[in-house]
Design a protein around this nucleic acid. Structure first.
Lengths: 341, 341
DNA sequence: CGCGATTCGGTAAGCGCTTACCGTCAGCAT
DNA sequence: ATGCTGACGGTAAGCGCTTACCGAATCGCG
């Protein structure tokens, strides 16, 4: 009848015990070639698929990888996700995603959920937060998770323990500052990200450093915070130009906001880059497709995803935390040029 | 010690049997208020989290929703996914994603995987295929899944049984054809999608119909197939202009390819829309942010995702297949205008 | 050729939960 | 009062798999 076959059926058909069937199927111990063959044949004949829950229950852990993402529809995260998924496919792992919609509580809730599910690995793919309380709560979760044998990797700088994949936000922003200064810009506006994110913090610090090194000032009113969404970029640009009409360049902390900034500039009939230059961060795929193509800092997003997945899957070697620093790269395109006059 | 608490611990602490504990926690049968209270208190005190695998094993089904997507980094799918996830969050469901990278075999493999996992619900979020063999194989999987009590929803027209969420690809393309003809275009190029996808089929059919109704021809050499990627759009546009230099408009079957087309036109020093008009399909978020803003057909992607999730989660009423037809809407922006002269 | 060492199958005990089934007892009609 | 019903707790049997443990068979060596 229609029942899905169990390992018992396989064992019976192969004429062996369930132990032998299980062992051949999981390769956990040598089984003589003859029996092995019979078991495989039986499994194939029944088109047997092991019940992952039973397996997870029996061995008290689940091979899937849990991923917590801020916002999957943000190209930054889609790219990371893409890398993650292709690496997962390569090593035959299943990945479960959760979207926090940028709510810290949800982030914690999802991590707790994954712990309950006994996933083997956990990837935090959002930025970390400059928030003591949150950091402590998350650290507790992660430590508990790892204490129970789980493996955790964070993407971006977190105050959570665990292996990490870190893009060089600081260096990228610094290089961009240097480049803008070099072009002759002296009055630069910044559309930053949510202040509590470490990503925002690092990009700002890097940009500041770069400007200092070039002796360019960055007054407080030339900084407006966005939330990494297009709309926020648009709003911030208007605010910025209101407060400091003489800006010759605007740096948005991600490309998505840079798109919003561009739109704001169009509304104000400012030409890019003739009247004002604009730069973003990330180098999302469409950055080179818009007109003018966007100057930005390339973050190897897909690669970060792949790396994170591989780190989480390969066995821990020793107990040393692994931290992979990934370089970012300044990509100068047509949206920036020397300032007018 | 560090063991995670089980329902036994909760029962013991509350001074009841595991059956009572389980029943209070799952609300499956009335339990007297007094005991109920004690169980909840015990669970809270131990910060008990049920083991989802044990639960899935015991009741032979798993509350998570499996989603099969073609390419999560394609904005079309990220938007659907976003809708899916927010609906899932609202009803407290976990969602597992798989990316097929557009390989039909993987699509089948993932569906099989989800069946093995006994997920309660399955969403096929990619386009269907005009492929008899594939359709049959998929239909078999879906039927088997549903026979075992699972619920399946497809997004887009599939040859698979199951509830469906269907955007009006035909109508949208037809409306666009009418609009272009109305503007005066007579020589229109098409960058279509992968020929085996039902989405491609329907958009082409709709566009054809619209042109016929306006007495505009669509010769075979004015159609080039892409694969929904930016690069393919760029290549196809070059091919098209090579073959038919006199085109006054190009319709790309999705916005991502339209971006590629735009780039190709820029390379050829053609102005949009002064020299040539261009239109896309989907209305992905950046469609209105590029310059010129893209004329396109809006597909309610996020809404489709939400709807699919809700359909899959709410109990089946009767055995009638539910099919939700969703309208699409022509959005005319600056990338189209009347043809030159 | 005997004996310990090794290999490899099988038996059975769980993993943590749900739920069929049974027993108890209060409440009610007769 | 008695018997019946219904409500509600508990007992225990799984769900499908892994794996510790045991014992039989095989091997190599002195």
């Amino acid at each position: 009848m229609g029942k899905t076959p169990t390992i018992n059926d396989v064992a019976r058909l192969a004429g062996v015990s369930v132990a032998t069937a299980s062992r051949t199927l999981t390769q956990v111990r040598r089984v003589s070639p003859g029996l092995q063959e019979r078991v495989f044949a039986a499994a194939r004949e029944l088109s047997y698929a092991p019940n992952p829950h039973a397996r997870a229950l029996a061995q008290a852990s689940d091979a899937t990888v849990g991923v917590v993402v801020h916002d999957i529809s943000d190209p930054y995260f889609s790219e990371i996700t893409n890398g993650l998924l292709s690496a997962a496919d390569a090593c035959d792992r299943l990945v479960v995603f959760c979207n926090t919609f940028r709510h810290p509580e949800r982030e914690l809730a999802y991590v707790r959920h994954f712990r309950a599910q006994r996933v083997q690995a956990l990837i935090l793919a959002g930025s970390g937060r400059e928030d003591r309380e949150f950091g402590a709560a998350m650290a507790e979760q992660i430590l508990g998770f790892e204490a129970a044998g789980g493996r955790a990797v964070v993407i971006g700088r977190h105050y959570a323990p665990g292996d990490a994949v870190l893009p060089d936000n600081f260096g990228g922003a610094r290089a961009l500052a240097a480049a803008l200064a070099e072009m002759g810009h002296r009055r630069i506006g910044v559309v930053s990200g949510p202040p509590q994110l470490t990503t925002t913090f690092d990009r700002l610090a890097g940009f500041r450093r770069g400007l200092e090194e070039a002796n360019v000032e960055l007054p407080a009113e030339a900084i407006a915070a966005g939330d990494f969404s297009r709309e926020s970029g648009e709003r911030a640009a208007h605010a910025l130009l209101q407060a400091s009409p003489g800006l010759t360049a605007i740096f948005a902390f991600n490309d998505v906001m840079a798109l919003g900034v561009m739109r704001a500039l169009r509304e104000r009939r400012l030409r890019v880059p003739a009247d004002i230059s604009i730069a973003g961060f990330d180098d999302i795929p469409i950055a080179c497709d818009i007109s003018p193509p966007l100057t930005t800092v390339r973050v190897p997003m897909a690669h970060m995803g792949e790396l994170a997945l591989r780190m989480v899957v390969e066995p821990a070697r020793g107990s040393a935390l692994r931290v992979e620093h990934l370089p970012t790269k300044l990509i100068v395109r047509a949206s920036t040029s020397r300032p007018p006059r």
